[in-house]
Amino acid sequence: MPLWAIHHTPGFFTDEDKRDLAARITDHYERAGLPRFYVVVIFDEIRSENLYVGGEPTSVGLRVVIDHIARHAPDKQRRNGIAHWIKSILQPYLEGKDNLHWEFHVDETSEDLWMINGLIPPPMGSDAEKRWVAQNAVSAY
């Protein structure tokens, strides 16, 4: 499951921006073969006086924390590709923001420590996973 926790200062995103960004993120993972319901995007508005960079409050900031659990990049080249894809997804929302500080990172968490609705997700490429993708829902397997 990809989990995107997007921490941002007030006014950074409109409601339409949030829907669009969440859809773009989800579409990408679906194209990679994941069920849409694996993708969780959380927008967390942080008041400027509560977001510090280098010990100083940041008036315009974005910090994205991404957990990849369902899939892992096998090598540095693929990880770099993921980083560039993330930058390209975020780029349209960064333009026109003066004094912006932004960054992201991706953690790859063991899939052994993950459940959805009390079930361990099926193995990658299995018939059960294909059924989850087709149904876009958790089901016993």
Rank of each mutant, 00 (worst) to 15 (best):
A5Q: 09
S88I: 05
T26P: 04
P123Y: 05
P74N: 14
A32G: 08
S126L: 09
E49A: 04
R24M: 10
E108C: 02
P2N: 04
V40A: 15
I69W: 00
E103S: 14
L119W: 01
F104Y: 09
R24T: 11
H72W: 09
R19I: 13
S110P: 01
E129M: 14
L21W: 01
W4N: 02
A70N: 06
E30G: 07
I46K: 05
Q77N: 12
V133G: 07
S126D: 10
P121I: 05
D112N: 13
R36A: 15
I86Y: 08
G96L: 12
H7Q: 00
A32W: 11
T26F: 05
G54E: 10
Y93H: 03
H105V: 01
L100I: 12
V60S: 00
A32I: 10
L90I: 12
M124K: 12
P35S: 14
I116K: 06
I89M: 11
R31H: 14
I6F: 01
H7E: 07
I116M: 11
P122A: 13
V53G: 08
L113E: 09
N50F: 05
T9E: 05
L94E: 07
P10F: 07
G96H: 08
R36F: 12
F104A: 07
E16R: 11
T26Y: 00
H28T: 14
A32T: 07
R36L: 14
L21C: 09
P2T: 01
H101T: 10
P74Y: 08
L3A: 05
P2H: 06
N80L: 15
